[in-house]
Design a protein around this nucleic acid. Structure first.
Length: 523
DNA sequence: CTGGGGAAGGGGCCC
DNA sequence: TGGGCCCCTTCCCCA
């Protein structure tokens, strides 16, 4: 069933709202003219607008590329899909429209203009003049073709190169540089988007690249709502998408996460590029995270995704850990995009269950079904009652129950689920996370999820082979300082852990513990 | 072959 | 956010 005029009616309403300024949330300044519009509409019509409205409520357009008359036409076109003619000569108008459309990355409109100009037998490329409508001489002589070419050049250098080529050919003089600061950004974004090398999923890559080129798009808006590096990366990625793939990269954008289910599968399911997976997961990550910041925890509609049980993969024994560390059994794929699920499933040949903690036995055949199920849970359900069933907790760890060594007087913050109490609310909150069904911090590489960010980043280090702590004696490297300290005892011969039963000494406490088991085990 | 010890990897959790 | 310490586990060596 489909309403025949739904889209049309919707657009009509939006256009009427625009006329009244109703719910308009962005102002576009073109020369002395102001235009009000809706960010969503602009963002949906052009990647360029999308990147701009993400940060700003007030947008200044390059008056060399677009003038008020043309922009009015363009805005009308965006809202109606119709191009209204002006009283100026058609060819001039289409040239101006083409330039502006190219500048604003309104590709449909640009194509339309090109078509029209072609039909009129007028080549727009390289034509001097014709931009009309208050254009400056320098812009008028600028060919749209060169605009587009410059924007798609491989790098900033490439851009300069192509521009200087034009200069040397005498087509442009020094003052004919059309690239305003915003254009440079734009160009940069596109070129980065076109070459996947620079993109990457790591925030390091993204930010470094921008900095290298003296460009930090996030600087555009100091009031960027979520300033985490992840989000910066997503933001960059969203802007770096080439126009040709405008819909796909948008799936990774923080501003367009709702598209992830639509745009992602195409680019991701078909790709084994882990970076692409990263992006989606980053998206998931940021969603989960920001949701929590917003107090989603207290929402009765919270969706919870869990690993079957921590104990599960332990029971599975070492083989699984070795062979499938990347995707442990009972992987807790959260609300990842379907494509990521498929990618992971394909990569690891594993079933990806969507078990609700309550229904571990049954599981759910699809994320949607689990989704529907978890919707039925209330906040209380988010907590697992302490019955010794929560993975990872064992008797030994219970011995370290803070309450056993401290009175509750000095630890006033008591866990509502178990008996533990803490000195400060932050620690309590951190502890309470261990009772959540959700694990908010997914590994971008294998999808494994963690309750604490630190644990996740530490885990990531193992993926990346980052071992910052080196032994000065033998050069062996470790992921953790503690390991290095432990290791140094090998060289020093220090064995601080002594068995009280047999006097055996050990360099590692854990080895003493396992040794003690030998004493206490029945056999 | 088996069991114990040494050394190391990785996750959970508290501070 | 990272350090520190707890845990389980694995791998290797050797008796």
């Amino acid at each position: 069933m489909e309403l025949p005029n739904h889209a049309k009616q919707l657009l009509l309403q939006l256009n009427q709202q625009r006329a009244k300024g109703f719910l308009c949330d962005v102002i576009i300044v073109v020369e002395n003219a102001l235009f009000r519009a809706h960010k969503n509409i602009l963002a949906a019509s052009s990647m360029y607008f999308k990147s701009l409205v993400l940060h700003d409520n007030l947008i200044n357009l390059d008056t060399d590329m677009v003038n008020p008359t043309v922009f009015r036409q363009i805005l009308d076109f965006i809202y109606t899909g119709k191009l209204l003619t002006t009283d100026q000569p058609g060819e001039q108008n289409f040239n101006a429209l083409l330039t502006a459309a190219s500048y604003l990355q309104l590709h449909d409109l640009a194509a339309l203009c090109r078509k029209k100009l072609k039909r009129n037998g007028k080549s727009f490329a390289g034509k001097a003049g014709g931009l009309g409508v208050g254009r400056s001489a320098r812009s008028q002589r600028l060919s749209t073709a060169s605009v587009i070419q410059a924007r798609y050049s491989g790098s900033n250098e490439g851009l300069k190169g192509s521009h200087s080529k034009e200069l040397s050919k005498g087509k442009l003089s020094d003052d004919e540089v059309f690239i305003s600061s915003s254009n440079q950004e734009n160009c940069h974004s596109l070129s980065r988007g076109a070459s996947k090398n620079g993109g990457g999923g790591s925030s390091a890559n993204g930010s470094t690249g921008d900095q290298e080129l003296g460009l930090d798009l996030s600087k555009k808006s100091p009031s960027l709502p979520v300033a985490a590096s992840h989000d910066d990366t997503q933001h960059s990625e969203s802007q770096h998408g080439s126009p040709q793939s405008a819909s796909a990269p948008a799936a990774n954008s923080a501003s367009s996460f709702d598209e992830s289910g639509v745009g992602a599968p195409h680019s991701m399911a078909d790709s084994s590029d882990p970076m692409e997976m990263d992006l989606s997961e980053e998206c998931h990550h940021s969603l989960t995270e920001s949701s929590q910041r917003k107090g989603l925890r207290h929402s009765s509609r919270k969706k919870e995704w869990i690993k079957k049980d921590n104990a599960f993969d332990r029971k599975e024994g070492g083989k699984d850990r070795d062979e499938g560390e990347g995707l442990p059994n009972g992987i807790l794929l959260g609300p990842l995009s379907k494509s990521v699920e498929r990618s992971l499933a394909g990569a690891y040949g594993a079933d990806l269950p969507y078990p609700c903690k309550e229904e571990v036995e049954n599981g759910f055949p699809s994320s949607e079904q689990l989704n529907a199920h978890v919707e039925t849970h209330t906040e209380e359900d988010l907590y697992i009652k302490e019955e010794g069933t929560y993975g990872g907790k064992d008797e030994a760890e219970d011995l370290s129950n803070p309450n056993q060594s401290y009175g509750t007087e000095s630890r006033p913050f008591k866990c509502s689920v178990c008996e533990k109490s803490y000195k400060d609310p932050a620690t309590l909150r951190q502890h309470e996370k261990t009772h959540w069904l959700t694990r908010p911090f997914p590994c971008n590489i294998c999808g494994k999820m963690f309750t604490q960010r630190g644990t996740m980043t530490r885990h990531m280090r193992s993926h990346l082979g980052l071992k910052p702590f080196a032994c000065e004696e033998c050069g062996m490297r470790f992921t953790r300082q503690y390991r290095l300290t432990e290791h140094m005892r090998v060289h020093s011969g220090e064995k601080p852990y002594e068995c009280q039963l047999c006097g055996g000494k050990f360099t590692q406490q854990r080895n003493l513990i396992s040794h003690l088991r030998m004493h206490t085990s029945p056999t």
